[in-house]
Computed example of a mutant assay.
Amino acid sequence: MMKRLDIKLIVLDVDGVLTDGKLLIGSNGVEFKSFHVKDGMGISLAKYYGIKVVIITGRKSEAVRIRAKELKIDYVYEGITDKLSVLKEIIKTLNLKPENVFFMGDDINDLPVINNVGFSAAPNDAAQIVKNAVDFVSNLNGGNGAVREVIDYILSQQDDYDYIVKNYVKEKIVINQ
């Protein structure tokens, strides 16, 4: 049985987590990334619940900045080789404890963060060493709803998930009839 979660900060890698990890680079040097809308809805739901969301990624990408702006991600750090140092600064700034932090990563460069947070997860197609180190392995691959699956799990462990969704729909989604 897993411990009760008290997550106040969601930290996500991008390539292989929010995307399928493929790098599509056109002949003009423009990079394209594919993001799953279900992950976006999960992030919106977590933010509605009051959880802050952070992206820490090793690459720099205009596509990431655009998607982060659309989702109103609280903090975006790109081109980061030492993700743990950045995370420690965020935790300090927000006056949180490591046990209040969730991180999702997919490869060996994410292991230092995975080993220093309260709850960690990986997509189903993550490196095996990462899957062995995390608390939760998604049934879904990166870029295919894995983030949403874990966010739904976190919210269901912290509160009445159906109640959260009901209120989110009532307040955030306008249905034209």
Results as ranks from 00 to 15, higher is better:
residue 5 L to R: 10
residue 7 I to S: 04
residue 10 I to A: 05
residue 12 L to P: 08
residue 15 D to H: 04
residue 16 G to A: 13
residue 17 V to Q: 05
residue 17 V to Y: 03
residue 20 D to R: 10
residue 24 L to I: 13
residue 27 S to I: 01
residue 27 S to P: 00
residue 28 N to K: 14
residue 28 N to Y: 12
residue 30 V to M: 12
residue 31 E to K: 06
residue 32 F to T: 10
residue 32 F to I: 09
residue 33 K to Y: 10
residue 34 S to V: 08
residue 34 S to T: 14
residue 35 F to L: 11
residue 36 H to V: 00
residue 37 V to D: 13
residue 37 V to K: 13
residue 38 K to E: 09
residue 39 D to S: 05
residue 41 M to K: 15
residue 41 M to D: 06
residue 42 G to N: 07
residue 43 I to V: 09
residue 43 I to M: 14
residue 44 S to Y: 10
residue 45 L to N: 07
residue 45 L to P: 06
residue 45 L to F: 10
residue 46 A to L: 11
residue 46 A to E: 04
residue 48 Y to R: 11
residue 49 Y to R: 11
residue 50 G to S: 12
residue 50 G to I: 10
residue 52 K to H: 05
residue 52 K to Y: 02
residue 52 K to C: 02
residue 54 V to T: 11
residue 56 I to A: 05
residue 57 T to P: 02
residue 57 T to R: 07
residue 58 G to W: 12
residue 59 R to Q: 07
residue 59 R to E: 09
residue 60 K to L: 01
residue 61 S to M: 08
residue 62 E to M: 05
residue 63 A to P: 00
residue 63 A to N: 03
residue 65 R to Y: 04
residue 66 I to A: 10
residue 67 R to S: 09
residue 68 A to C: 11
residue 69 K to I: 00
residue 73 I to L: 14
residue 77 Y to A: 06
residue 77 Y to N: 09
residue 78 E to R: 11
residue 79 G to Y: 07
residue 80 I to R: 01
residue 80 I to N: 05
residue 80 I to L: 02
residue 80 I to W: 03
residue 83 K to G: 10
residue 84 L to S: 03
residue 85 S to E: 15
residue 86 V to Q: 06
residue 87 L to C: 00
residue 88 K to M: 01
residue 90 I to F: 00
residue 91 I to F: 01
residue 92 K to D: 09
residue 95 N to S: 09
residue 99 E to K: 04
residue 102 F to P: 01
residue 103 F to K: 01
residue 103 F to L: 01
residue 104 M to S: 03
residue 105 G to P: 00
residue 107 D to P: 01
residue 108 I to N: 10
residue 109 N to L: 05
residue 109 N to S: 12
residue 111 L to N: 01
residue 111 L to E: 01
residue 114 I to D: 04
residue 115 N to S: 05
residue 118 G to P: 00
residue 119 F to G: 06
residue 119 F to P: 03
residue 120 S to A: 15
residue 120 S to C: 07
residue 122 A to G: 06
residue 122 A to L: 00
residue 124 N to I: 07
residue 125 D to H: 12
residue 127 A to V: 15
residue 131 K to V: 04
residue 133 A to D: 05
residue 133 A to S: 15
residue 135 D to M: 10
residue 136 F to H: 14
residue 137 V to E: 07
residue 141 N to Y: 14
residue 141 N to W: 12
residue 142 G to F: 08
residue 143 G to A: 09
residue 143 G to N: 07
residue 143 G to R: 09
residue 143 G to K: 04
residue 144 N to I: 02
residue 145 G to P: 08
residue 148 R to W: 13
residue 151 I to W: 13
residue 152 D to H: 12
residue 154 I to L: 09
residue 156 S to G: 13
residue 157 Q to W: 00
residue 159 D to Y: 12
residue 160 D to V: 09
residue 162 D to C: 13
residue 163 Y to V: 01
residue 164 I to W: 14
residue 165 V to Q: 08
residue 166 K to E: 15
residue 169 V to R: 15
residue 169 V to N: 15
residue 169 V to M: 15
residue 171 E to C: 10
residue 173 I to N: 14
residue 174 V to G: 11
residue 174 V to M: 08
residue 174 V to T: 15
residue 174 V to Y: 14
residue 175 I to W: 04
residue 176 N to K: 15
residue 177 Q to V: 14
residue 177 Q to T: 13
